[in-house]
């Protein structure tokens, strides 16, 4: 991967990749692995980008796909994988990736969600329209709003239970 490609096509969108990778990993080591894999995948698939969508949408799509694939792989390899409901609090609450404590807590709550719900809420929080969310996730835009509300309720409940 040329330095130019990284500087111009990946680095300006690093925040997107970081936000997504953080939601799917429980340690700094995993986060860095996921981040690198996403960068590689963006580089690998750069020729497939047909400009039918924005580059940022493409980055979102690849980041989510890579994270979901890696998560699935780690499950398949029998590596320690914690599903949303059995995720030990010790692991997730010790993972303080951000300076803002409320943000760390929100990420803890997000990691308690299912893989797809995590993707959905991340895109919602990034202020993507329901149609964009549906395009990125390859789903129907009709029930996105209902699902988002349900997820927000769940997040509030988790935050109240864990941190209040």
């Amino acid at each position: 991967m040329s330095n130019d490609f990284y500087q111009t096509s990946i680095l300006p969108f690093a925040a997107i990749i970081i936000k997504i990778c953080r939601a799917y990993t429980n340690s700094q080591e995993d986060f860095e692995d996921y981040y690198q894999e996403v960068c590689l995948q963006i580089w690998r698939s750069k020729d497939n980008f047909r400009e039918q969508c924005k580059w940022s949408t493409w980055v979102y799509r690849i980041s989510l796909n890579v994270c979901l694939t890696l998560l699935k792989k780690s499950k398949g390899n029998g590596q320690t994988y914690f599903t949303s409901d059995v995720l030990p609090d010790v692991i997730i609450t010790e993972n303080r990736a951000f300076e803002d404590e409320s943000l760390n807590q929100l990420y803890v709550a997000i990691r308690h969600l299912s893989e797809v719900d995590r993707a959905l809420i991340l895109l919602y929080l990034e202020e993507k329209s329901y149609q964009e969310i549906a395009d990125i996730l390859g789903t129907n835009a009709n029930n996105i709003g209902v699902r988002v509300n349900r997820i927000k309720e769940r997040l509030k409940k988790i935050l109240d239970e864990k941190f209040n």
């Binding site: 936000k19 960068c39 300076e99 803002d100 409320s102 209040n164």
Partner: peptide
Amino acid sequence: MKNSIEVIWKEGFLNEKSLVAPKINDLY
């Protein structure tokens, strides 16, 4: 919970230093 999750998200990422990309030295 004082703030909505949208506010936590937005304010949390204002001036967030953790959004600096990790260095990629030896990608593989």
